[in-house]
């Protein structure tokens, strides 16, 4: 790790202008991934703009019933917040399924979204990686890739996005709020992360200098049955082999609304739009869920050693959807 300058920002404007006025700047949040990558030499900032003390640490209800989570809200506080737990259980569950108690105490909402892939080739400077060093090649494609993508990968990159939280945000129709040199804007969580294409170095749609200031969960998905399920190599403290977040609204015996997203299958949380379309208006039966999920996963292009991810994702998606349907139907009749 080379030496770097450090500045602590007191306001969002101060942060973005500090970033803009220094080449090689990076925002420092909880640091759980950035510091890790700096130690590995993957990230080499010239200056860190510390944003952890910005007044972005609140969970607040908006007038329209939506919920805004400040970018500096720590993962553990997010998962424990009564409004999050009660209205968006999938989000709380997803956050709690990730990392460890210590890491969740440090990691921020914004930082969680911006964490980088755990692809071992990305982390190892002595190996080719198009994400780390565009044009150098991909070590994983013909290498060790059991954990890699089955959907949406490109010849340049087969990495997956490691976040659990982002999968839930994607399913719940959250929006990511940004502030940068060109002012404030927001992007749907489902569109925030990119597919690798021929620019795998670009994880997200964030523009240079932009800062994630918060995440807004819409009123539309508040209070609906939602859940997150993750499969992994050990019982805790491991990245997903596959995960799923789903939210389901059943009205008049048919699916009135559904959000379904997969984690660990692609370069971004994979919003299952085809499955959702197939389910809208259908009765929430096992057959309908199987048809919809199979339709979605028919797009999968597994690599040599990760074909298992398709039935794994299928299995947990059907499990979560059927449980949500049970909940929705029980609620309706009670």
């Amino acid at each position: 790790m080379k030496e770097f300058a450090y500045v602590r920002a007191g306001s969002v404007e101060e942060a973005t202008s500090a970033y803009a006025s220094h080449a090689g700047a990076r925002y420092l949040g909880g640091g759980t991934n950035l510091v890790d990558l700096m130690k590995l030499g993957v990230e080499r900032p010239a200056i860190l703009v510390d944003v952890t003390r910005l007044p972005l640490d609140a969970v607040e209800e908006l007038p329209d019933g939506a919920l805004r989570i400040g970018a500096m809200v720590r993962n553990s506080d997010l998962a424990a917040h009564p409004l999050v737990r009660d209205r968006y259980p999938a989000l709380s569950q997803a956050v709690l399924a990730g990392a460890s108690g210590q890491l969740r105490n440090a990691a921020t909402t914004g930082g969680n979204l911006l964490q980088r892939t755990r692809c071992p080739y990305f982390q190892d400077l002595s190996k080719p990686c198009n994400k780390r060093e565009p044009g150098s090649g991909c070590g994983a494609r013909d290498g060790v890739h059991r954990d890699h993508a089955v959907l949406g990968h490109s010849e340049h990159c087969i990495a997956t996005h490691p976040s659990d939280m982002a999968v839930a945000l994607t399913a719940l129709d959250a929006r990511v709020e940004l502030y940068g040199p060109e002012g404030a804007r927001s992007v749907a969580a489902a569109d925030f992360h990119r597919l690798p294409g021929d620019r795998p170095e670009q994880d997200t749609e964030i523009r240079p200098g932009e800062l994630v200031t918060g995440v807004v969960l819409p009123a539309a998905t508040a209070g609906l049955p939602s859940a997150y399920r993750k499969a992994r190599d050990r019982a805790s403290y491991a990245f997903a082999l596959a995960s799923v977040a789903a939210v389901l609204r059943v009205s008049d015996g048919v699916v009135g609304g559904v959000g379904l997203a997969f984690g660990a299958l692609a370069h971004r949380p994979w919003r299952a739009r085809r499955a959702e379309e197939a389910l809208l208006g259908a009765a929430p039966t096992a057959a309908a869920f199987e048809h919809a999920v199979d339709l979605e996963l028919s797009a999968a292009r597994p690599l040599r050693d990760n074909a298992y991810k398709v039935p794994l994702a299928r299995g947990i998606a059907l499990d979560v959807l059927s449980r949500l349907a049970d909940t929705a139907l029980t609620r309706r009749t009670s």
């Binding site: 290498g143 060790v144 190599d233 050990r234 019982a235 805790s236 403290y237 491991a238 990245f239």
Partner: peptide
């Protein structure tokens, strides 16, 4: 060895 750190080489944790 691809699994060179403790995030990828899975030593059992308490929950296991």
């Amino acid at each position: 060895f691809t699994e060179s750190d403790l995030a990828s080489y899975h030593v059992p944790v308490h929950a296991d």
